[in-house]
């Protein structure tokens, strides 16, 4: 299964493709896609360069992101693990 993610062009915020073609800033909303619809969704996002920067697919299952990308993706989802932004979010 795959998750589609990107940064929003105007403000850079991390977004995930959610149910019904909606894009969410919450990782919890991310929808798991089979390879074929995932590729189609990626192509669709890539065709909207005015909304998204660098869309890509993450390997994931129901439990979450696969191990190799887990740390990076968890930091993208939850913010820095250390530092001032923890006190300021």
């Amino acid at each position: 299964m795959k998750i589609l993610t990107a940064n929003r062009l105007a403000d850079g915020a991390v977004v995930w493709l959610a149910l019904g073609g909606r894009w969410s800033t919450e990782f919890e909303d991310a929808v798991r896609l089979d390879p074929e619809p995932a590729a189609a969704a990626l192509a669709q996002a890539e065709a909207q360069p005015g909304r998204f920067v660098a869309p890509y697919l993450i390997e994931a299952d129901a439990a979450g992101v696969e191990r190799r990308e887990r740390l990076r993706e968890s930091i993208r989802a939850d913010g820095p693990t250390a530092g001032h932004s923890l006190e300021n979010v």
Partner: peptide, 17 residues
């Protein structure tokens, strides 16, 4: 755009610009 924004110090990082 990327090389142009970089020459003005704008990166795209994990969470934001």
């Amino acid at each position: 755009f990327k090389p142009l924004r970089l020459m003005n110090g704008v990166y795209l990082q994990l969470h934001a610009y």
